[in-house]
Design a protein around this nucleic acid. Structure first.
Lengths: 229, 229
DNA sequence: GACGAAGCTCATGTATACATAATTATTCCG
DNA sequence: CGGAATAATTATGTATACATGAGCTTCGTC
């Protein structure tokens, strides 16, 4: 009935019950931060030594991350942070456009005053980060923002899928944000999204959300195509 | 570019490269077969002894299955085959209705003669199994049938998600099939689906597919509601 | 007699050590 | 001198052994 436990990425600075989970969280953070860039090979031994644990929890963390799509494990050949092709990124955004407006439609009418307060807080942090040109936390904030909007949809499976899609798309959008004014537009659209929900204009909010995701996707695609040449 | 490797359930009787993968496959089979019914607790030690391996590959197999949604792991409390609530099952089918027709629309125009031959073969096995009242392989055949239809969609991420959804819905549909004539209707609709694709009536095929999934979902829901009383 | 706490038992979680497969380097042959 | 087969190296995969935490039984107290 509650939201998923196994795939709950944004929890941080919380002492986990297992070392595996703690290692998984740290590694996930690093991948989303860009500390572990796409294409990086992750060697179990090095990670184990760095974290001061054995290789077992590292292996389990890698498997967890593979389930989330953040790493790819080749049997007997180790794990790498996968590079997504253009078509795979497009698929990512198409899925988001398909799924997220549905979640919002189901969830938005149930958002409480406390939820809106939390959303405003995230928007605030958002602009603070923006001013300091410190985009390290952008992905985390973006994912939290979107998942907060959808939390009352009562569709845990979809929410889990979307959570992973958000992680992945954030990871690939991060670079692009540095190069363009995309982050400012996203900020404006996020605020507008909250406003529409508050006013009860749920249909318009869903439409804006779809357009918002589509725009980020197009923008990212264009950037990647430029760099690919 | 190719279909996913890490989450490729239907492969069987193939000597895997790792024991973990082999154990995962065997356990997946048993869960889908109903050998491990919903609610069953899976103890690592017992499984390890039964398979003649240590607990490490068993643990990794369990994590793999958790990523597929076939088991749920509670930290320090072991793994169980989860029981899905009515609303979760409904969500499952809604997602399938949303995603599968899109895959079919993208894939159907690219189906080759060899693909149709393979589809016919599955339909043949299908009716053979039906006559012998031997529904053990039904889930496997159903998943293979659907994934075969979608294989040329070039949407690996979606295909992976749908693969998991198919597994889950097969697992819960299996019991229901025994009690109703659902399996015969499914057989007819599957054959019709292939016919429409062959004739190039892709839109009609997609519409039928959506209706097919929706019907199975409604039927399953009705059965579960009856049993719940 | 019932409720609560402390100790026990067992399953899971983690570390260490060994086996195996893949990559790289080396050597031998053409 | 070049290529292919083979041996050495390295990282992953698995087994064994130990640590930890959860659930349960039992004992004590109210």
């Amino acid at each position: 009935m509650t939201s998923g436990k196994s795939t709950m990425p944004p929890r941080k600075s919380l002492n986990h019950r297992t070392i595996s989970a703690a290692v998984a969280e740290e590694m996930r953070q690093r991948i989303l931060d860009g500390h572990f860039a796409a294409g990086t090979q992750l060697r179990q031994d090095a990670l184990a030594e760095e974290f001061g644990v054995s290789r077992i929890p590292v292996r389990e963390a890698l498997m967890q991350l593979e389930a989330e799509g953040l790493v790819k494990i080749l049997p007997h050949r180790g794990a790498i942070v996968p590079t997504l092709s253009l078509s795979e990124i497009e698929e990512l955004f198409e899925l988001r456009i398909l799924l997220e407006p549905r979640l919002l439609a189901a969830s938005a009418p149930r958002l409480s005053a406390a939820d809106y307060h939390a959303l405003d807080e995230i928007l605030g942090e958002y602009s603070t980060e923006l001013r300091t040109n410190h985009i390290g936390r952008w992905g985390e904030l973006n994912t939290r923002f979107h998942k907060l909007l959808y939390q009352h949809a009562n569709q845990p499976r979809t929410l889990g899928i979307v959570g992973h899609l958000l992680q992945e798309s954030d990871r690939h959008t991060r670079l692009q944000l540095l190069l363009t004014a995309g982050i400012e537009r996203a900020e404006i659209e996020h605020a507008e999204l909250v406003r529409l929900c508050r006013e009860g204009a749920f249909d318009k909010a869903c439409a804006l959300l779809a357009e918002h995701i589509a725009h980020v996707g197009r923008s990212l695609r264009k950037t990647l195509e430029e760099r690919g040449k």
